[in-house]
Design a protein around this nucleic acid. Structure first.
Length: 495
DNA sequence: GCTGATGAAC
């Protein structure tokens, strides 16, 4: 690309000629000035370049063996690279290297980088350990810590840290808000979100584009679409793709396809380029059969624009075809994927089940296992549903054993599906066992188990559990009443 | 130096 070369070239020139007085001095005695450039900065600069190139192995080989005079410049780029690659074991090695050369405790900058690296690599505990040891924390340190919490799905910890910041009087800066607002959204705590919104106004960051975008997302996650729309409407310069993506995604994830797609059209009219996030949000809105044509159009546009299909876009495409009951298209899209991740596998799997193709789902599960994938909760739930519908008790039990082995049977949703599977396979004893083992039970658990007993002619057992439901504070739902009526007719009692 | 918006299930 000639244009970027020219750009780079002029940039270098401007930095060299940025200090004319120096230049005058060097002109007096140029030959002596040249060797006075120390070798150190050149070395660390190359390490930074290696890191920018993204080769972790090369970066490791270029690390100085003993302690050096520029720990910040040495370690910061390597830590950043570890974070980018989510390379925890390498990050730990760098941390060890740093301890050996005594450069962690003195530098808040490097300690903050460590917190950031551990957060990105998914090790909240290590991030906390480093964070706790830092005496004088900067606002960057606090932001790195709450960022680590929020990106690892720990909104309660964000809330706690936020309270600590308030008590200590740490002033919030622009970049504190996105993480705090995301945590409010994860907690669906509109009250907290509004409080943080208030602080953003107080500190004067409510017009900062990333803060506004985070606010839009927060209100949407807290089911306040009106609030999200009002904020989006107040943005003067609507020229940021993320702002549009936030509001489109707000509508599409709340099932408001029409509004989402109207906003997408408006965005196109404004002449803004969409990206993968836009595609995902729009595809989500194309779940309705009536939008299948638009979904195909977006599919075509995506194929045209991206050389390599983004994992999220691919997943959204598969999910879109599933919702439009186009399983052959879904499978075709899935097969074209170079990197098939778990969500993509699960989308196809649940697609088969939603479309009543249980034996296809079981076949597909064999492919899943042959590909060396490990089932997660969603996979287990899908296969249990298929087993139940097909009446495959032995396969269901096998999956139950697997679920127990890795502790999934304690999961509420997995437990509920196990109850349903055993009920459908008329295996009442194991159904009761699965139900009793559940540490938490919700309305669906009770409804499913009562229906299971009633449908398998265990009317008295159904009554017994119904009485228990009335004792604990759970609302009775129509499904449950239906099961109890069935049990009544079984016993021919009308009382 | 830290930051914002994405795909799956009973």
């Amino acid at each position: 690309m000639p244009a970027s070369l020219v750009h780079l070239h002029t940039n270098n020139c401007s930095s060299i000629f940025a200090h004319p007085p120096m230049l005058i001095q060097t002109q007096i005695n140029p030959t002596l000035k040249i060797p006075s450039f120390s070798r150190k900065p050149i070395q660390t600069h190359t390490l930074k370049d290696i890191c920018l190139r993204g080769n972790l192995k090369e970066a490791f080989q270029s690390l100085p063996v003993s302690s050096n005079d520029h720990p910040d410049e040495t370690y910061a780029p390597v830590l950043e690279l570890c974070a980018q690659k989510k390379a925890l074991s390498q990050g730990l090695q760098i941390h060890a290297h740093m301890i050996k050369s005594c450069s962690v405790s003195e530098s808040v900058f490097l300690a903050t980088k460590l917190v950031f690296m551990y957060g990105k690599c998914g090790s909240v505990r290590n991030a906390e350990k480093v964070f706790d040891q830092i005496g004088q924390r900067s606002i960057f340190t606090w932001n790195a810590m709450i960022g680590a919490y929020v990106s690892n799905g720990k909104p309660f910890e964000v809330l706690q840290t936020y309270k600590e910041m308030r008590v200590l009087g740490v002033p919030l800066y622009a970049y504190s808000f996105p993480s705090l607002l995301k945590a409010s959204g994860l907690l669906k705590n509109l009250y907290l979100g509004a409080e943080i919104h208030g602080l953003a106004v107080k500190f004067g960051y409510d017009s900062t584009v990333c803060v506004v975008n985070s606010l839009v997302a927060m209100y949407a996650k807290c089911d306040d679409l009106f609030g999200a729309r009002r904020l989006f409407g107040r943005i003067d310069q609507k020229d940021d793709v993320v702002s549009w993506n936030s509001i489109i995604s707000a509508y599409s994830s709340n099932g408001r396809s029409m509004e989402a797609l109207e906003l997408f059209r408006e965005m196109q009219k404004a002449g803004l380029d969409s990206n993968t996030y836009t595609a995902v949000a729009c595809l989500q809105a194309c779940g309705d059969y009536s939008f299948r044509k638009l979904g195909k159009e977006i599919h075509a546009a995506v194929l045209k624009s991206a050389q390599l299909l983004d994992a999220y876009v691919a997943g959204a495409l598969v999910a879109m075809y599933v919702r439009c009951c186009k399983m052959s298209e879904a499978v075709r899209t899935f097969n074209k994927l170079e990197e098939k991740d778990k969500v993509a596998w699960n989308s196809v799997l649940t697609g088969f089940i939603q479309n009543g193709m249980c034996s296809e789902a079981l076949h597909f599960f064999h492919d899943f296992q042959n590909a060396g994938e490990k089932p997660d909760q969603v996979t287990v739930i899908s296969i249990l549903v298929a087993c139940g519908r097909m009446g495959y008790l032995l396969n269901g039990m096998e999956l139950h054993a697997y679920a127990i082995k890795i502790g999934f049977d304690l999961d509420l949703q997995v437990g509920n599906t196990l109850i349903d599977m055993y009920a459908k396979c008329s295996c009442v004893n194991y159904m009761g066992y699965a139900f009793n083992r559940m540490p938490d039970k919700d309305l669906i658990s009770w409804t499913t188990v009562i229906a299971g007993y009633a449908q398998n002619s265990y009317a008295l057992k159904a009554f017994e559990l119904f009485r228990e439901v009335q004792l604990i504070d759970i609302d009775v739902d129509p499904m449950m009443i239906g099961s109890i009526l069935l049990a009544c007719s079984e016993l021919a009692c009308v009382s």
